[in-house]
Amino acid sequence: MNTGVIQGGWEFVWAAYAVTATILTGYGLSIFSRYRAALRRRSAAGPGVTR
């Protein structure tokens, strides 16, 4: 205690990495699914539509 070194704390380390991984993965997947949905909507507009 008196050494000034913080003992343990691995649970906080794991929590930080888990939060980071979850948020980044979730956000990446959300972008990917939005991208797929937008592509699908565009192709659903039909081949006759020229832009």
Binding site: G4, V5, I6, Q7, G8, G9, W10, F12, V13, A16, Y17, T20
Partner: peptide, 12 residues
């Protein structure tokens, strides 16, 4: 040295 293992949060 001072922060111990908690310092590893810094890598993220």
């Amino acid at each position: 040295t001072y922060m111990g293992d908690v310092q590893r949060i810094m890598y993220a």
